[in-house]
Simulated assay, not measured.
Amino acid sequence: MSILEQLSIKHPILLAPMAGVSTPELAAEVSNSGAFGSLGLGASSIASARQQIEATRALTEQPFQLNFFCHETEALNPETAARWIKYLRPAFAEFGATPPESLQCIYPSFRDNNELLNLVLDTRPKAVSFHFGIPHPKQIQALKQAGIITMVSATNLAEAQAIEAAGIDIIIAQGIEAGGHRGIFNPAIDASIKTADLVQLIHKHCQRPIVAAGGIMNGQQARLMLKLGAEAVQLGTAFVQCRSSNANTAYRQALFNQPLTQITSSISGRPARGLINRWHMQIEQPHRPEVPGYPYTYDLAKQLHAVASAQGDQGYGAFWAGSNVAQIRELEATDLINQLVLEIKQGH
């Protein structure tokens, strides 16, 4: 069965599930256009996640996916945290603020949270996808029994093979060009493979259907991925500028005015690609201390951004974007999908 049949969609295009940027409106617009909408719920409370799912269902009868974080939860090292807080103290001081004394684990992992599993089983989306790892076997079994399609991001062949061995239905091949967080299972190991190369590797060694993700901004790039062995493509950055996304004005403007990206783990504690700003130019120095684990580092970053943005400084925003962001087009979701489909078909 093809991905189009599995997901009950018309076009081989998936909206990347961007936590913080995704909205029910954007998900519904994408799904109503014959592609596959998504809700990035990794940063949402149970109540907020349920509300977003219900709001999306009110806007579309078409299928969409939910996405959660599946990281290995790690204990916070107090000494590492203290050094990192001290390192960022001057940045807070610039805005007349002091950093917190401790860091919180602001995002739970799906692996540790059966409330999230129960939410998925209760709401029965067409598919659920995971970033940073694979759910527990019992969780996968429960999702399968409920008839929910499972997808997991892979950034190298070893991860893809682990995904296939776990019985996951679809592999999302996330190349180094992708915006936002790298889906790597182990933050110490990043193969940094280009999307095109990763698709070919997985296609050669795995049997599961592949969705290509990373650096895809137009139909020509999508068509190349489909030729290399992907059955569909996933785009995130291209949709951030849509009016229905949750991106703020500064983020939208930066996509068009400052389209240079870099990967850093200074923002969240895990490597992620975003538009170059004060994080990359001031914080990411050679003498920078070790960052605390994810998502503790993110807790501090969000607090710094809050105090800075309150005074009109957007330089500490987490403006995630892929490496081909300079090719971004100002189009609403429906028009963007129609344009992508047209461009994909032009090559056939």
Rank of each mutant, 00 (worst) to 15 (best):
Ala43Met: 05
His71Pro: 06
Glu94Met: 05
Ser38Ala: 15
Glu79His: 03
Ser45Cys: 02
Glu94Arg: 15
Gly96Arg: 05
Pro63Thr: 11
Thr80Asn: 12
Ser44Ala: 12
Ala35Pro: 12
Asn32Pro: 12
Arg89Gln: 15
Leu59Ser: 08
Glu79Asn: 07
Glu72His: 04
Gly37Ala: 02
Pro100Thr: 13
Thr60Pro: 05
Ala75Glu: 15
Ala55Leu: 11
Ala75Tyr: 01
Ala58Arg: 10
Pro78Phe: 05
Ala82Phe: 04
Ala49Ser: 15
Ile53Cys: 05
Phe68Asp: 08
Glu74Tyr: 00
Glu29Asn: 12
Glu72Thr: 10
Leu59Thr: 10
Ile46Val: 11
His71Met: 01
Thr56Leu: 05
Ser31Lys: 03
Arg57His: 14
Gly42Val: 13
Ser45Thr: 15
Gln52Lys: 09
Pro99Glu: 01
Thr98Phe: 01
Gly37Arg: 00
Ala28Gln: 11
Pro90Gly: 11
Phe36Leu: 11
Ala49Gly: 14
Gln65Cys: 13
Pro99Leu: 00
Ala81Thr: 02
Gln62Phe: 09
Ser45Ile: 02
Ser45Tyr: 05
Pro100Ser: 14
Ala58Thr: 06
Ala93Val: 01
Arg83Gly: 09
Pro99Asn: 00
Gln51Gly: 04
Ile85Asp: 09
Thr73Arg: 14
Thr56Val: 05
Tyr87Ala: 07
Lys86Met: 10
Asn77Cys: 08
Pro90Ala: 09
Ser38Trp: 07
Ala55Val: 04
Ala35Thr: 07
Gln65Arg: 02
Glu29His: 12
Gln62Ser: 05
Glu61Thr: 06
Gln52Ala: 12
Val30Thr: 13
Gly37Pro: 04
Asn77Asp: 15
Gln51Ser: 14
Pro78Gly: 03
Phe95Tyr: 15
Ala28Cys: 12
Arg89Asp: 12
Phe64Pro: 09
Thr80Ala: 12
Ser33Tyr: 04
Arg83Leu: 14
Pro99His: 00
Arg89Thr: 15
Ala97Glu: 14
Leu66Trp: 09
Phe36Asn: 08
Trp84Met: 13
Leu88Asp: 10
Ala35Val: 08
Phe92Tyr: 13
